[in-house]
Design a protein around this nucleic acid. Structure first.
Length: 716
RNA sequence: GGCGAGGUAGCUCAGAUGGUUAGAGCGUCGGAUUCAUAACCCGGAGGUCGGGGGUUCAAUUCCCCCCCUCGCCA
């Protein structure tokens, strides 16, 4: 899209928030696409810096600390470690993975703020905010609860009602109170610094709405347009909290920077830190500026759709206001990935956690990379299911890719003792293969450059399919068999050269796959390199542009025995994962019920098989009045009812004795299934059935008309 | 309520600046084959491209209205 040639690329992946572990949603939306992109650029020989780190400020970590009964520092340490370790094991190729609690970040963020302040780019405003007099502090929105004005939920948070999903501000809550002390709140004056986003609105409009109309993804562009069209307002960038980066101004010691102000600056700190660690003597001290303050560098933010506003509006405005920085060239945000029909939720533990996956599927990093890439939420929300995971592994990775590579390798060992045969005369079908092969690096590369990773991966699989087709068409094993027969009969082997050529070319395809799969499946790439005895193909020195040819593997060289690249995944394994999610679901329900007695209805029974209207018409349901009721002897549950159905008076037995006394139901109007075949219980014939409904506690209630009706009225 | 994104084969998803038979993978059905992890290969069936109107020689693609899902904002 962009014509401009850049000397360098700075790629950032959204900072994961340190209040929980990383899950497949994060991977599919942000980290895998970013990693594919970066690995590809490196293979192209580009200068790339890839940074990320843990985001450790803000209110949710403090709430998490409360919940887990540990300090905030312990919370962020814990989750930083979990995320850091799992990212490393999963193979993300960050040049630096930092954290925002580090000194270098605090300094960088404070300096940034101070620069803006010094230049007069910030606005100071006074506002009234909720204050908890008992806890002696201002309260973050999340720490205020009250009654939701929309749905009446008494425990809605100051920023959102979890019952109806409505976004709120604390002022809208009815009877707001503090979660810290349960005290009634007072409003108190406080001063904060604001980023006057309104001042940058014209620039943002021109930059995004006109400048990036065609090269930003529709979801990103649309989201920005939505914000810009509705008009920007100054946004507070400081908070009255005790967890965060202190505002670097005198008499502001009790204030900290807003987490969304400091977090994106984390990308800058991470870059600085990279060079600090690389050259502790300080000789590369200013090198980071080549990535942040030089128009020859291209800045790219990989994020999820929830971060669009901060990366497309807020942070660029900050960078622009500062004046020394470049702004992002693109922000390829993905949508969300759902898990088995439902939204992924950290708080509800509805997720596949990366660290757990790595433990339960050891050595299968690439399987998850593959599945999440092939179904990535690039244009709209997508869905992960364990069944799909299994199928993609078994049918695509194992049966297609793994199988293809194995075929020529096994044949080479069988026929030539593992020595790569020469290339002889080329037939038309060979030329077809060679021509097609040459197209792949370009096709895959173009897809990656356009952030269409799903498409790129599909091309890769097409190459493997092409290999399978070629082998099928040429069937070297048949030629070999013919030769065997001939020579047994004292004849001449006629196909020797042909078989050599076929296997040679098949191995070249496998070798190309080994290189081209590197951005998507780095672990597989490594295994393939070993199998083809090309472990010296360092991904950093083989150039992408050299692929597509048939000279990657040399005749006469040996190759290793074929290994199984992808094991099949058994049904049992998948069932275990599904069961695990079901258990989570159960646990959530139990917790919900324990929390408040006002049980949300427990999950309703599934709908029964479809019937046609005629089936329904067969039921004769009437309104009737209970004229008498008595307990049935020797039966705990049964009441004998006398009903006036308007057409007759009849006896019906009903198993409701544990829920109602005879006295309280006489005179009540109910619905009765009047044409049910009579049935004898305890010696008494029951001539119908009274309709009842059961609530979540198992309590029975009558299904009755809301207004009195004539007995015998038909229900339909 | 306003705005944004999406609603395409059984499933998960592509695509089309409007134009001959709308695609892929998986699933399904049939055939062929055995080098390979019962894998591969060939072929078939399956879609009034959310609903309704309009513009046009022509709309699934453009315009309007409505419905549904997700998100942002109030």
């Amino acid at each position: 899209m962009t014509e401009k040639k850049y000397k360098r690329h700075l790629v950032t992946a959204a900072l994961p928030y340190a209040n929980g572990a990383a899950h497949i949603g994060h991977l599919a939306g942000v980290y895998i696409p970013a990693d594919i992109y970066v690995r590809y650029l490196r293979l192209k020989g580009e200068d790339v810096m890839f940074v990320c780190g843990s985001d450790e400020h803000g209110v949710p970590v403090t709430i998490r600390a409360e919940k887990e009964g540990i300090t905030v520092q312990e919370v962020v340490d814990k989750y930083d470690q979990i995320i850091r370790d799992s990212f490393k094991e999963f193979g993300f190729s960050f040049d630096n993975y930092s954290r925002t609690s580090r000194k270098i970040h605090h300094e960088t963020a404070q300096e940034f703020f101070a620069d803006l302040h010094k230049q007069g780019k910030l606005v100071k405003k006074t506002s009234y905010q909720f204050y908890d007099p008992t806890a002696n502090q201002f309260l973050a929105d999340r720490l205020i609860i009250g009654t939701c004005p929309t749905c009446g939920n008494p425990d809605a948070y100051g920023d959102q009602c979890e019952n109806c999903g409505r976004t709120l501000s604390p002022d809208e809550l009815i009877d707001p109170r503090s979660t810290l002390s349960d005290a009634a709140l007072e409003k108190k004056e406080t001063e904060h610094w604001y980023m006057p986003l309104d001042q940058y609105e014209p620039w943002l409009k021109e930059w995004i709405l006109e400048g990036h109309k065609d090269d930003w993804k529709p979801n990103v562009y649309g989201q920005c347009k939505s914000w810009l069209d509705s008009g920007l307002h100054p946004r507070a960038i400081t908070r009255d909290l005790d967890w965060g980066i202190p505002v670097p101004l005198s008499n502001s010691e009790d204030k900290v920077l807003y987490v969304w102000f400091d977090a994106p600056i984390g990308y800058i700190s991470a870059t600085k830190e990279y060079f600090e660690q690389k050259a502790p003597d300080g000789s590369l001290k200013d090198e980071w500026k080549k990535y942040w303050q030089d128009e020859d560098c291209r800045l790219l933010h990989f994020i999820g759709k929830d971060n669009i506003v901060f990366h497309c509006i807020m942070f660029p405005a900050m960078l622009k206001a500062h004046g020394d920085y470049i702004v992002p060239e693109n922000v390829p945000a993905n949508e969300f990935m759902n898990l088995q029909e439902r939204k992924i939720s950290t708080s509800k533990n509805w997720a596949v956690w990366l660290h757990e996956y790595l433990r339960e599927f050891e050595g299968k990093q690439d399987v998850l990379r593959y599945v999440l890439t092939s179904n990535a939420p690039e244009t709209s929300d997508s869905m992960f299911t364990w069944e799909d995971f299994q199928k993609r592994n078994n049918n695509e990775l194992a049966d297609n890719l793994g199988n293809f590579v194995r075929r020529p390798v096994a044949l080479t060992h069988k026929y030539y003792g593992g020595v790569v045969p020469p290339l002889n005369a080329i037939e038309p079908e060979d030329q077809e293969l060679i021509d097609a092969l040459a197209e792949f690096p370009g096709k895959i590369g173009k897809a990656i450059e356009e952030y269409k990773f799903r498409e790129g991966l599909a091309h890769l699989m097409d190459l493997s399919r092409l290999g399978n087709q070629y082998l099928q068409k040429t069937s070297p094993w048949l030629l070999h068999k013919e030769d065997q027969k001939e020579s047994q009969n004292g004849g001449e082997k006629k196909h020797t050269e042909r078989i050599e050529t076929i296997l040679h070319l098949s191995l070249q395809v496998a070798a190309n796959l080994a290189l081209l799969c590197e951005p998507f499946l780095p672990f597989t790439a490594e295994k393939l390199r070993t199998m083809l005895n090309r472990s010296k193909w360092n991904p950093n020195c083989i150039q992408w542009n050299e692929t597509g040819g048939i000279n990657i593997i040399t005749p006469g060289q040996t190759i290793e025995k074929a290994i199984v690249l992808f094991e099949k995944i058994e049904d049992k394994t998948i069932q275990e994962q599904v069961a695990k999610l079901e258990a989570t679901d159960e646990a959530n329900k139990a917790e919900l019920e324990a929390k408040d007695g006002t049980t949300e209805e427990k999950s309703a029974e599934p709908i029964k098989d479809e019937i046609v209207f005629d089936d329904f018409v067969k039921l004769d349901i009437r309104v009737a009045t209970i004229t008498a009721a008595e307990k049935v002897k020797k039966a705990d549950k049964l009441l004998k009812l006398t009903l006036d159905t308007g057409v007759d008076v009849r006896t019906v037995l009903s198993g409701i004795a544990q829920h109602f006394t005879p006295e309280e139901i006489v005179g009540k109007q109910v619905c009765v299934l009047a044409n049910l075949a009579p049935r004898k219980m305890r010696g008494i014939e029951s001539q119908g059935m009274v309709l009842m409904a059961e609530d979540s506690d198992g309590k029975l209630k009558f299904v009755s008309p809301t207004e009195a009706l004539q007995n015998g009225s038909v229900v339909r």
